[in-house]
Amino acid sequence: MSALAMKERPQVATAIEPLAFETRDLSKVFHIGRKWYAGGQPLRAVDGVSLSLRRGEVLAIVGESGCGKTTLSRMMLGLQPPSSGEIFVGGEPLTNVDRKVFARRVQPVFQDPYSSLNPRKTIGEIIRDPLLIHNIGTAKEQVAEVEAMMERVGLARRQIHSYPSQLSGGQRQRVAIARALIIKPEIIICDEPTSALDVSVQAQILNLLQSLREQMNLTYLFISHDLSVVEYMSDYVAVMYLGRIVEAGPTSEVMNAPRHPYTRALMKSILTPEPGLGLPDIHLGRGFPDPLNPPSGCRFHPRCIDAMDKCSSIVPRTLTDGEKIIECHLHDPEMAKA
């Protein structure tokens, strides 16, 4: 069964079990420097992204800063309307619906637990807020629910009246997770949830996220730049470059046998704690290109060590092979023939 189905053939999967989520040709264009009298310069932050995932699985999105992964997550949360394309959650279209509808099904855990909690509210108020917004249960039930959720994520009940400034980074991230889970969403968007934490705390939070996923049958969209975390956490991985998915597939396959030259460079840049190996040679040109003026043809060709002549002129096709997606002339049989 295809978990990362392309838009040409998603029906096979949906017929049996609705996909937890699916995006079809999702795009977001910003207009930089737009004034009321002038249109501004278009920036395609996300460009035709089609992804899907089954319930209970984890899809990781990796890429450099500016590749569009944050914009993608904002669209998935209903915080930014897509310029074009569609989002389906549990088989239902959620494109351009009110963010309140989105909220019941998709919730975020953000990167920085120091800025993701309102410093003027107590922990109890923060976790309870979604229940108040959606008017779920009586006041008594809400408090009971908050206490149960705090226990579940590993917070002490007496911390219900504390303020965020009284907690450590790891505890704050637990609060953020509790707030996200309290209205029982199906999908959690984890945007770099551990990159602001110490190594030992990171391990605790990753373990917690994994246990909650198993207990509550959650689906994660896991955005990270730390590839060893991605390898540990995810079932599938999608590599983004300048707004496009250039390679995607099951994590073990992509990590062990990366096909796209960019994925290969990313994998080589993982610094495992193995002394003596020294620094890897990642074979990657310097400089992230200007997203306002993306390179012609394959957007990656100026940094690619395997670039051919046609890479600068012909845009590579999206090829799918079962659960795998790749956009590269090197892996296009027709291009290899030519």
Binding site: G78, D112, N118, D129, P130, I133, H134
Partner: peptide, 26 residues
């Protein structure tokens, strides 16, 4: 642009709720 405002939006809070309950107290 702070993440607690983003979180509140993602929780489905209306703009007036965000203005009153999240921003004003700060």
């Amino acid at each position: 642009e702070r993440e607690f405002i983003m979180s509140s939006k993602a929780a489905g809070a209306s703009n007036s709720r965000i203005l009153w309950r999240e921003i004003l107290p700060n």
